[in-house]
């Protein structure tokens, strides 16, 4: 259990992993704050949330869910490939992951555009006409999916770095921490999406 303080002489794989998990905790609570706001307003404006949710396109939402679930699997394969020492396969699956991530964002972009075209965006007079519940529903929808999309973009940048690090040999079979941690981040984005999907698209 006790570890000598000689971290320069000997590599402690637990250190980057623990750091990443602690960071993930903060990310979870960052979204947690928004989930608290969502819960309170859903409690107050339950019926309006119910009606407003009908405006969202379940098909697009489902497609995006599938994309993210697939990308989580490709990430997992990319990680196990590097752990087995197959750098090329790992790189290929990272690229597939990035393509899936971009597909998700493109999808999201068009979905947002349709909503904005219908005047369903914060500050619009159309939305104000629908009443408080709808205003808050779409405010939360844009804030939460927007923050999620921002995390996806950050994730894509991180994968770009991962590719470079595989290329330059900074990330190897012996030191896969960067890819493992990027994977943790990507899976976190997936977990958050699962809850966003359930809470925005799956209101009966």
């Amino acid at each position: 259990m006790t570890n000598t303080s000689a971290h320069s002489e000997h590599y402690d794989a637990q250190i980057p992993k623990m750091g990443m998990w602690l960071f993930i905790f903060t990310e979870m609570l960052l979204f947690g704050g928004l989930f608290i706001v969502y819960s309170i307003y859903r409690y107050i404006y339950g019926d309006a949330f119910h009606l407003a949710a009908q405006e969202l396109n379940l098909t697009i939402g489902t497609i995006n869910s599938m994309i993210l679930l697939f990308s989580s699997t490709t990430v997992a394969i990319a990680i196990s490939s590097i752990q087995r020492g197959n750098k090329k396969l790992s790189a290929i699956f990272i690229i597939i992951t990035m393509v899936l991530g971009i597909a998700f964002l493109v999808n999201k972009y068009f979905e947002w555009q349709v909503k904005i075209g219908h005047g369903l965006y914060p500050g619009s007079t159309v939305l104000a006409g629908f009443g408080h519940g709808d205003t808050l529903f779409f405010g939360l929808y844009f804030a939460m999916t927007g923050l999620h999309a921002l995390h996806m973009i950050i994730g894509l940048v991180i994968w770009g770095y991962a590719l470079v690090f595989i290329q330059t040999g900074k990330t190897t079979q012996d030191r896969p921490a960067f890819i493992e941690n990027s994977g943790l981040y990507w899976h976190l984005i997936d977990v958050i999406w699962i809850f966003l999907f359930s809470l925005f698209y799956l209101i009966t």
């Binding site: 989580s72 990430v75 997992a76 994977g183 899976h187 997936d190 977990v191 699962i194 809850f195 999907f197 359930s198």
Partner: peptide, 12 residues
């Protein structure tokens, strides 16, 4: 959703 999150966190 919680079961899905559990699966992802436990295995992935």
């Amino acid at each position: 959703a919680a079961i899905q999150a559990y699966i992802i966190m436990a295995y992935h």
